[in-house]
Design a protein around this nucleic acid. Structure first.
Lengths: 229, 229
DNA sequence: ATATACTGTGTATTTATTACACTAAGTAAT
DNA sequence: ATTACTTAGTGTAATAAATACACAGTATAT
């Protein structure tokens, strides 16, 4: 295969592990490749960095092309560059993770040339991934596991208004373990960064929970004192 | 300047923030450039990644060329790639931090072509740095500040045998704050990863302290339970 | 003998973490 | 309107971890 494919000069690409939370499961966005190599395999969305883009701009663009959304929370976390990670030549890829809330109203944009389509797949049941994308995903998950312990990234996976149970689910899914309800609430509210609204959850067939907002201003004032889970 | 210099095609380089501890101060290794751009400026040591090297291999090579040492502890931490960060073209650089103990017996190798020489400069008093190297350094320090809180990286800056006071100094210098002696000792020994030797410090003009070793095996058994500062 | 410089140690107080279970509120079905 | 169902919301006691704090002992140098 390596001899048939055109050779690329050294290039950089960006690959994104885009996490989404739909209220129940944690999913990532994968694309189904329509080109060799790894035709018909699932892969992380990614693309070549254009000459005049910064890295973050490039990642934003890729996320925009996939989702139609701007301003998605994202963070570069590692560069993967084994000489043989790509059959067509040396491609160093910069991995980003990104977090987004999944809602019913917003759907994926149709994707570009090299992919048949894109789907949200639950992280509890991922297919085999192309290239070294399994490694990239693993490291991405590891990074957000660490990060959620100290930084307020869970809110990026939720709507602006959320219930404490939803917030707890996000922590549980990312950390991969159950948390005690009372202890979770005691701790998360103790930082004073959640604002309880005069509003209840809607559309549920049981007692509606209070809605909360994350208060960025109050969080900024904590500076130095980090959240810890 | 941009017009006179030859244009480079897209390339990747690696830059290293090599931290060293000499028993008193925390220093980094800087080279004094002998070429444009930024001739005569101080810069982080770095180099182009060769086509057949992995990224870690490349960083190892760069560190070896500077110090003559193999097996230095290092970790890739971020990619810097603003389109205008290098006047000669698009150079994406992968930043590594590395940790080493400084002793009197081992000296620096003379450095390659593009540098006049290399020096260890204390981080408390750094000169202006070439390119975006200040930014790279800042982020590197930030990373080891986080990392030392949970991972046993302090030992990389010390000889195999060290005193608890030396260990405490390393924590204090990296975290940028004083720690309480009794509390530090209580905590660091509580993990059971330090082995007290039947041996005392030598060459000091006051009561000699006990020497300790870091016990990697016992640390490995802690798996899951992280150190925390 | 004395000055100097650092080693090595304990306790009490405060704060954070953990473990644990039931009642109340709203919805849906009959 | 009764009932069944599902989740919301709450407190306390026990344990563990973090903090604040000071002085006597030991080796060396003069």
């Amino acid at each position: 295969m390596e001899q048939i494919l055109p050779h690329l000069d050294s290039v950089f690409s960006i690959d994104c592990v885009l996490f989404g939370f739909d209220g129940k499961e944690l999913k990532i966005l994968l694309i189904e490749r329509n080109e060799e190599p790894f035709k018909d395999w699932w892969a992380l969305p990614g693309n070549i960095v254009r000459p005049d883009e910064s890295l973050d701009q490039s990642a934003s663009r890729i996320l925009y092309e996939l989702t139609g959304l701007r301003g998605i929370y994202m963070e570069q976390y590692y560069a993967f560059g084994d000489p043989d990670r790509h059959p067509q030549g040396r491609v160093i890829t910069l991995a980003y993770y990104a977090l987004i809330r999944l809602s019913d109203d917003k759907d994926l944009k149709p994707v570009s040339d090299y992919a048949k389509g894109a789907s949200w797949l639950p992280i509890s049941d991922l297919p085999k991934l192309a290239f070294d994308h399994q490694k990239i995903y693993d490291k991405g998950l590891e990074k957000i596991k660490r990060r959620i312990k100290h930084q307020p990234i869970a809110f990026e996976l939720l709507s602006e208004k959320f219930t404490l149970t939803q917030l707890q689910s996000v922590y549980e899914l990312i950390l991969g373990k159950k948390l005690d309800k009372r202890n979770f609430r005691k701790k998360i509210t103790s930082y004073g960064v959640l604002k309880e609204l005069d509003e209840k959850q809607k559309g549920v067939s049981y007692r509606a929970a209070s809605l909360y907002k994350f208060d960025k201003r109050k969080y900024a004032k904590l500076f130095g004192k980090e959240i810890s889970f």
